[in-house]
């Protein structure tokens, strides 16, 4: 088994669902998906969701800019660590991620072992 990190990216513009009803729908979708990963013993760690604010420190000059927004159209909103047989399986599991319904993406990255 190999470990993979899922990085969730979404469009800054699509950040906020429009109504409580819509939020509840998304909440349920996330919970169902994570529950399934858990039940099938793929889930290793539930990462936190990241707030949309923050700073970016860049380059040798160590310049500091506000927030991840400035240059990126897609921001990382959270992460999750799963275990799967191979990259194909990890990618297939990511198909159920609700971030896709909101027009976002999941980056699937193998975590290299020493």
């Amino acid at each position: 088994m190999t470990r993979f990190m899922y990085l969730f990216r979404h469009h800054a513009a699509n950040e906020r669902p429009s109504s409580p009803e819509e939020m509840q729908r998304q909440m349920k979708a996330w919970m169902d998906w994570i529950d399934r990963l858990k039940q099938e013993s793929h889930l290793v760690a539930t990462g936190d969701r990241l707030s949309a604010t923050g700073k970016v420190v860049r380059g040798k000059s160590k310049s500091v800019t506000d927030g991840p927004y400035v240059e990126a159209k897609d921001t990382i909103g959270g992460y999750l660590v799963v275990e799967a047989a191979d990259l194909d399986q990890a990618t297939a599991l990511a198909h159920g991620c609700p971030v896709l319904d909101a027009g976002g993406s999941v980056e699937v990255r193998p975590i290299s072992s020493m």
Partner: peptide, 18 residues
């Protein structure tokens, strides 16, 4: 405020549990 609070719930409940 309510919108913010529900967003906060949406961001934390799925991973931390209800």
């Amino acid at each position: 405020v309510v919108q913010d609070v529900l967003c906060q719930a949406l961001q934390t409940w799925p991973t931390h549990g209800l």
